[in-house]
């Protein structure tokens, strides 16, 4: 196993990714420390979701290196995946299986013990106890997303990757999400999320990373002093249209 610099929860260096002729990420570089809650901001197409997919090991970068808790993801795939929980755009659940059956399957793939207890505990955390035996197909988008969050939490990952987690959620679901974020912060674990709701993001995050055209435009803590800089950098991520001129 290749272990490097365990001081960082995530260390991304010069990551480049392109799809066909389109360069999505250009030498992305940033780092997070354990216990930090960070948010990635940027316009549509800035490369936020691609970056998260690379960190979740669903897509390979063209070049660059990524360490997660000291593990090089190119060399220690299964170890890194055991440390990481992900909720991406789609809930990625088997719709003809119940929530409980889905959670049981993934608990088995993660080789967890006391699966029934874990399912009840995590379902409670995201408020889906009453829906555990419902087929995923019959659930609303919000409940499907909560079920996906429960799945990501099952193995107590050190790093949680969330791609626009609040999209399609009602205020109650968002409060469950906030509780999870708070629990992570207090237990010294790390969250990296993307969002378009910047005010909410700056409230809950310790750090903001603004991506423009595949570059890290700004990496900053979210203290009061820095908030205006972040807002300004974020507003610059949107390309000017003829209507703006």
């Amino acid at each position: 196993m290749t272990k490097r610099d365990p001081l960082f929860a995530i260390k991304v260096e010069d990551v480049v990714k392109s799809y066909a002729e389109v360069m999505v990420l250009r030498r992305i570089k940033f780092s997070l420390q354990p216990g930090e809650v960070a948010v990635i901001l940027g316009a549509n197409g800035a490369g936020k979701s691609t970056l998260l997919r690379i960190l979740a090991m669903l897509t390979q970068p063209d070049s660059g290196s990524i360490d997660i808790y000291g593990n090089d993801i190119a060399k220690n795939g299964p170890q890194v995946r055991a440390l990481t929980g992900s909720v991406l755009h789609s809930p990625m659940l088997y719709t003809d299986m119940s929530v409980r059956e889905n959670l049981t399957l993934f608990a088995e793939l993660y080789r967890l013990k006391n699966i029934d207890t874990l399912i009840e505990k995590n379902a409670c955390k995201v408020g889906i106890q009453s829906r555990l035996d419902h087929r995923v197909r019959t659930l609303s988008h919000g409940f499907q997303k909560r079920a996906a969050l429960a799945r990501a939490l099952m193995h107590k990952p050190q790093l949680l990757l969330l791609d626009e987690p609040e999209s399609g959620l009602d205020s109650r679901s968002v409060s469950y999400l906030e509780n999870v974020v708070e629990e992570y912060r207090s237990s010294g674990r790390t969250i990296l999320m993307t969002t378009h709701i910047i005010e909410h993001a700056l409230e809950i995050a310790d750090k903001a990373i603004v991506i423009t055209d595949g570059y890290v435009h700004l990496e900053s803590t979210t203290t009061c002093l820095n908030k205006s800089n972040i807002l300004s950098a974020y507003s610059h991520t949107f390309p000017k249209t003829s209507g703006d001129l």
């Binding site: 669903l58 299964p78 995946r81 990625m92 993660y110």
Partner: peptide, 15 residues
């Protein structure tokens, strides 16, 4: 493919 669940399997710490 329908539920994008192959990616869910790929997230698990298995080879």
């Amino acid at each position: 493919l329908e539920g994008n669940t192959l990616e869910a399997l790929m997230l698990a710490p298995i080879s």
